[in-house]
Design a protein around this nucleic acid. Structure first.
Lengths: 361, 361
DNA sequence: CTGAAAGCGCTAACAG
DNA sequence: CTGTTAGCGCTTTCAG
C-alpha cells in the first residue's frame, strides 16, 4: 500500500489531522488552518467552531508538515561542548541558553564525542537529520573536514575558544590573562611562582593552558626572571586536580611563594591543600586564579575575571544576528568577536612574600 | 502563485532538491532516495553517479520532508531545569545527555521561566511547534494544567524530584537523607545542631529543604532531642549562601557544635566561614553535607552521597524505554522509579563534640 | 469570509 | 535494478 494513514507515532496517542478537524467543524482545511493560526480573515463564529472541534479531537498540527509547507526553520541552535558538568561549560551554556530562549530559539546541547584534546571531536555530530539553524562550538577543535561539512550544510557557526579561519570566533586573549595574573604577583615581589596548569597538553587542539603559561612567562621575563618549568604542574582544571598539584608544588623544599592557578576551581583546590599543609594564604603563599567563579569572592581569591556567562551570551547573540540578519558575510572568515577584556580582581589571597622567602630568590 | 519554489532559507545557501539530483544523475527520484540512504536495491554504478551528482549540487535532504513522509519522530528529548549553571542540574543534565546520545537522541535544554519556587513554571514551554518525543522535568513544579497539556500533547514524561501523580517519577527520599546525616551527628554526641537550608521555602512547589529538615527533626526526636528552629538558616544552595548562613549560625553565643548543610556546596561555604572565624573543623565544628560533590572528597567532608549523574541517566533510560518500548502504561500514574539509596560517607569533617560543648546541652 | 487545489520534498508500494 | 505514482499534513494562492 502507499504510505496511507500512518500508525500513531506514540502508542496511545491518536493523532488527528487538519482534515479531521475540518470535517468535524464542517469547514474546509484551509479555514481550519487560518482559524487555528489566528489569521484575520475568519468569522469569529467559525473560528470558535473550529477551535472547539480541534480541542475535541485533541488536534495538534504536525510541525513537520507545517515546516515543509512554509519552509520555516527549526529555530534551534546546538551548543557543542566537551563536557556539560563543569563550571565553565555549564556557565557558557547558561549564557547561550538565556539569549536563545529570549530570541525564540531552543538550545540543543551536544557533547563532542572525544575530549577536547582528541582528534575528530566532531565525529558523528554532523550529519544525521538533526535540525539546527546554527551551532556554537565551545573549545572544540574543528578539523578542516568538519569545516567543509559545516559550510556544506549551510549552518551558521560561531566558535568560542578554539579558533578557525572560517567562522566568527569569540576568542579569549589567554596570553593577556596569564600576564595579568603574574604581573600582579611579580609586582608584589614574588619570584618563585608555581603554575597549576591544565591537562597533559595537546597544544594542537587545546592550548588554553599553553597560552596562559606563555603570558606568565612574559610577565616574568619583563621582570628579568624566567619561569621555572619544574614549577608547572597539571591540575586538570578541577578542584581535586588543583589540590593534588598544589600538594606536589608545596611539598618542595624550595617551594614557591606564589601559585598561579589557571582556573579558580584549581585555585580552590590549592587553597585547601595549603590549609591541610598548615600554610597560611596569603602569609605563606599567594594565590591567583582565573574566572571569578562564585567561590572566588567567598574565599577572597585574587583572580582574573572572565565574564563566562557573557561569553555564551555574546556567541549566541552573534549567531542569532547572523541567522536573522542574513548579512552573513559580515563576520565570516575567522573574524574575531570582541569580548570584554579580562580584568584582575585583587582580593585577600595575594600579598608580598615574606621577607625570607623573597630574599631567597 | 502556489507556494512554488521557496526562497533559500539561509541566504547564500542554495538548496537543491532530490529532483535536481535525479535530473543531474539521469535517474528517477526514487532511485536517488534509495541510493542516498544506502538501501540495497541499487546498482553500484548508479549509486556512484547519484552520489556524485548529490555532492556537486550540494544536496542535503530536507529532514522535514523526510519525516513527514515516514512519520519518523524527531528523536529529541527536552530536559527542563530551573537553572543550568548549578552543580546539581549540570550533573543531572550530563547524565541524561550521555544516555540520550547513546540511544541516538538529542537533548534540548530548557529552563523553566520562573524559578522552581514560583507558580506556572512551565508557562510557555509547552506549545510552540517544538519537536520533542519526551521530556524530563527536574525539580520543576507541574500544575494540573501543565499535566493536562502534556498528556494532550502525547509526549512521554519523566520527572525528577518534584512528583506528580501522572508520570513516572524518580523521587529522592529526602527525609531519609536528612535522617542519615543527623543520625550520624547525634550518634557522635552532638545535640546543638544547626541546619543550613535552602531558600525561603515555598513548600507547595519545592520542598526538598523541608523534607531533609524533617529527616533531621526525626533523627533528633529519636534521641529525645528537638531541632531548634533558630538554628535553621537559609543558604540558597550556593557556596556563598552557605558561607553567610554559617557566619550567622557560628556567631551565636550558643553556637552549634555541628552543622548539617543541605548540599555540599553550602557545606563548603560553611567550611570557609569556619576557617575565617578561626574555628577548626572538626575539632570545633562538625560538618555534614549532601551530594558527594567532587569537592567533598578533597576537603574530607562527611556527606550523604547521591548519585546525581545517575539520576539524570536513570530518568533518561526510563524515558527512552517508554519511547521505544511503547508499553507506556507500565510506569504511568506516578509510579516511582527506584534509585540507588543515598548513603552516608564518613570523612574527616565530623567527630564527637568537645567535652565542654557536649556537656552544655 | 470561505473553499478548491496545487504544491512543499521526500518515501514507499507497485509494476516493470 | 529502476521508474511511476500516490500520498505524508499543512499552507497558500486564487476564485468565488
Amino acid at each position: 500500500m502507499p504510505p496511507g494513514r500512518t500508525a500513531p507515532r506514540v502508542p496511545g496517542a491518536e493523532r488527528s489531522t487538519i482534515e479531521d478537524v475540518a470535517h468535524a467543524a464542517g469547514v474546509s482545511v484551509a479555514t481550519v488552518s487560518r482559524a487555528l493560526r489566528g489569521l484575520p480573515n475568519v468569522a469569529s463564529s467559525t473560528r470558535a467552531r473550529v477551535e472547539e472541534a480541534a480541542r475535541d479531537l485533541n488536534y495538534r498540527p504536525d510541525p513537520n508538515a507545517a515546516r515543509l509547507a512554509t519552509g520555516r526553520r527549526s529555530r534551534t541552535v546546538a551548543v557543542v561542548v566537551p563536557f556539560i558538568n563543569s563550571w565553565y561549560f555549564a556557565n557558557v551554556i547558561a549564557g547561550a541558553e538565556a539569549v536563545c530562549a529570549d530570541g525564540g530559539y531552543d538550545v540543543l546541547v551536544l557533547t563532542s564525542p572525544s575530549p577536547a584534546s582528541r582528534a575528530d571531536p566532531v565525529g558523528g555530530l554532523l550529519g544525521g537529520d538533526r535540525q539546527v539553524d546554527g551551532m556554537i562550538f565551545v573549545e572544540v577543535a574543528l578539523e578542516s573536514d568538519d569545516i567543509d561539512e559545516l559550510e556544506r550544510l549551510g549552518v551558521e557557526v560561531v566558535t568560542i575558544g578554539q579558533r578557525t579561519d572560517h567562522f566568527p570566533a569569540l576568542s579569549i586573549d589567554n596570553v593577556a590573562i596569564g600576564r595579568l595574573a603574574v604581573e600582579h604577583l611579580v609586582a608584589l615581589g614574588h619570584r618563585r611562582i608555581g603554575v597549576i596548569a591544565g591537562q597533559a597538553e595537546d597544544p594542537e587542539h587545546f592550548d588554553v593552558p599553553g597560552q596562559r603559561i606563555e603570558g606568565a612567562r612574559q610577565a616574568l621575563a619583563d621582570a628579568g626572571q624566567r619561569l621555572d618549568d619544574d614549577l608547572v604542574t597539571a591540575g586538570q582544571f578541577t578542584i581535586e586536580g588543583g589540590y593534588r598539584a598544589a600538594q606536589v608544588l608545596l611539598a618542595r623544599t624550595d617551594r614557591p611563594t606564589a601559585l598561579f592557578a589557571l582556573s579558580d576551581e584549581m585555585a580552590l583546590g590549592a587553597l585547601l591543600a595549603a590549609r591541610d599543609l598548615g600554610l597560611d594564604v596569603p602569609a605563606d603563599l599567594s594565590l591567583v586564579g582565573v574566572d571569578d567563579h562564585e567561590v572566588a569572592e567567598v574565599i577572597g581569591l585574587t583572580t582574573v575575571r572572565q565574564h563566562v556567562v557573557e561569553h555564551g551570551a555574546i556567541a549566541a547573540r552573534t549567531l542569532l544576528r547572523q541567522l536573522s540578519g542574513g548579512r552573513r558575510s559580515t563576520l565570516r572568515r575567522g573574524a574575531p568577536i570582541s569580548v570584554d577584556e579580562a580584568e584582575l580582581v585583587v582580593r585577600r589571597s595575594t600579598q608580598a612574600p615574606a621577607a625570607g622567602a623573597a630574599a631567597r630568590s
